[in-house]
Design a binder for these strands. Structure first.
Lengths: 348, 348
DNA sequence: TTTTAACACGCAAACGTTTTCGTGACTTAT
DNA sequence: ATAAGTCACGAAAACGTTTGCGTGTTAAAA
């Protein structure tokens, strides 16, 4: 088991100095053709590669970006990662991941671990707990130390940094407008509590669409789920709530759900109650997920283009990393990725 | 924008030497209580944290593990990552990801990037292309440089390293036995071509179950898909093939599919042909995915316990990293994670 | 008063690079 | 023959740590 070879070892073997080896490998014109040839041959033979850690230390640059997300077993986030990884690799960066598991303290710990030299910048989406507690000190501290942050999807305006978001408001509005155009008269909304910014915005989009079409929103038709529960495990609770909604509002003929699972559950409950989708009830969800595509009937959704978000976030971050324009005060931008309404079988 | 503070800066401010600061922070008894108190107060004030990169260089240890997978937008792999991340963090390690995108060359490049000092060891699952080309030089080279590798799921016996696999053979056999016990007389198999080890083993499990029950396998009932195609985009091709299978073998009353998508497609085609699942045809898939749970009818599957695989792989790897027992020749182990048959609505 | 020991701290090397600068040995021009 | 200029290379510093060892000061023991 041989260790990785270093400049020092090559130097010793070839009886030259370390600096000569280093320069020879870079085809420096300070070094004679003879020596260059000799060194490069030896280096190739032993498959020399410079040690990244040493380079990082010397250059004060790791060429690695950290990504902190609440959860990885989730199509949206894994697609974002794929996007990040794609452009990161293309631009010579590695990606290191940290999972907050929706916990504030894990988010803080993870960021601290990575912030101490391991990476050049962060791409992150806040945990629900952080959103609830509204404690953003770790973000601000990280940035004050000169480490750039790009946030995506779950953002708050209090934090001054680059952001990549989806137009939740317009996406939701479009979806509801589609239902209205499809002759739905009584459109229910299944959403989350308001502290999650995206849920809030989608709810507003729903209301705006109703308003513009002179439909009076009814509180009865709006179901706000407590999403601190993991509904992958408490599916029955979710379904029971929706069933209750449907039963007490028989006139419902359209449903807009702010995520995939809510939408699927709505369809499931509808079927259970003997209602046909899309004939009796039309359903639209909000996501990029795989469930929508393979559901029966397949689900019409607002697509978020998660991968594109990841790509954009990575580009923004690397741009920031690579310009040391500390000159004028920082300029932050918020990029809005447009949504698409992907029409499938759950709408007419 | 202040840079991160270093020992040197603390030393200069407090007019002591760097080593004194370092020792004071570690409560070394070489240092007076006075100085310790002074240094620690200052360090806390400025929120000093040692630079990971410098530590990595000094200790020749990064406390980071690399994970190379073919694809991240995939429930199985993201669950594995979650498992890896879970135990890695618990044991003080970070996780850095590389995606091979099922490509041999990207796998090689990614490994080379990480192998040069960035990480202490690899956890990986081979790309399809690597499996086809059977070129494993990059794995062997990496290991010969003293970097441990743990492989999971897609493995080959030619490579000597720790492995974590699922008992594909037994899992498949159990599933088919279940179908047989449920009175299926004509059981079809939808699988991949044999170069993917897992597909091959699952096929063998299928055959073995038939054999033990004195059922003669029929070539007509075995559909081998070319999985170099991405069936997420070529769904129609997949469905057409399955439809062909069903139409030319009307007696089929059971289907075992080696993954989730094949199984779902089989159900979809069955429905299209007016066959009821599970009354006319019972279906079992193989995976941990989310589709199975939310499909209609929900799909009975062989669960792989992906997260557990990730956890085990991480433990194996870190164990190996942390024992420098170069003494006797290396001992490699292959851990088999048992599968579970999760019964849902697609079987009786 | 001298020797010894404890104490509190600094020096320097090491991890593996890159890069600036210095310096001998030649070569060329005067 | 001497001055100037190339050429080819080495020494050393720097990135931020940790740690073994040396050392000056003081206090205790002889």
């Amino acid at each position: 088991m041989k260790r990785k070879i270093t400049l020092k070892q090559i130097a010793r073997e070839l009886d030259v100095s370390i600096s000569t080896v280093s320069k020879a490998l870079k085809n420096s014109k300070e070094i004679s053709a003879d020596t260059i040839q000799k060194v490069q041959a030896f280096a190739k033979l032993y498959n020399y590669r410079p040690n990244n850690i040493a380079l990082s230390l010397k250059n004060r640059k790791t060429n690695t970006i950290g990504i902190i997300i609440p959860e990885i077993v989730h199509h949206f986030f894994s697609k974002v990662i794929r996007g990040v990884e794609l452009v990161a690799n293309k631009r010579g960066y590695n990606v290191i991941i940290g999972l907050s598991n929706e916990s504030f303290s894990k988010e803080v710990i993870n960021m601290e671990m990575l912030a101490n030299g391991s990476i050049d910048g962060f791409i992150l989406s806040m945990s629900k707990e952080t959103l609830q507690q509204q404690d953003y000190h770790h973000f601000n501290e990280t940035m004050s130390q000169g480490m750039p942050i790009v946030m995506f999807d779950r953002v708050v305006s209090d934090i001054k940094c680059d952001k990549v978001i989806v137009d939740d408001f317009k996406g939701a509005k479009n979806a509801v407008e589609k239902l209205i155009a499809n002759k739905c008269k009584s459109i229910a909304l299944i959403t989350t509590k308001d502290y999650v910014s995206v849920g809030k915005l989608r709810t507003q989009g729903y209301l705006e669409a109703l308003h513009e079409n002179r439909i009076t929103p009814e509180a009865d038709l709006i179901l706000k789920m407590d999403d601190t529960l993991d509904y992958e495990v408490h599916l029955e609770t979710l379904e029971a709530e929706i069933e209750q909604l449907f039963k007490s509002n028989k006139k419902i003929d359209g449903v807009f759900a702010v995520n995939e699972l809510y939408a699927l559950s709505a369809m499931k409950v509808a079927r259970k109650l003997g209602l046909s989708v899309p004939n009796d009830i039309q359903v639209i969800g909000f996501t990029d997920g795989v469930l929508s595509k393979h559901a029966t009937p397949s689900l019409t959704t607002v697509s978020q283009h998660a991968q594109q978000m990841g790509e954009k976030a990575a580009d923004l971050l690397i741009d920031k990393i690579e310009t040391e324009f500390d000159t004028e005060e920082e300029q932050f931008q918020t990029v809005v990725i447009p949504t698409d309404l992907v029409e499938r079988e759950s709408t007419k």
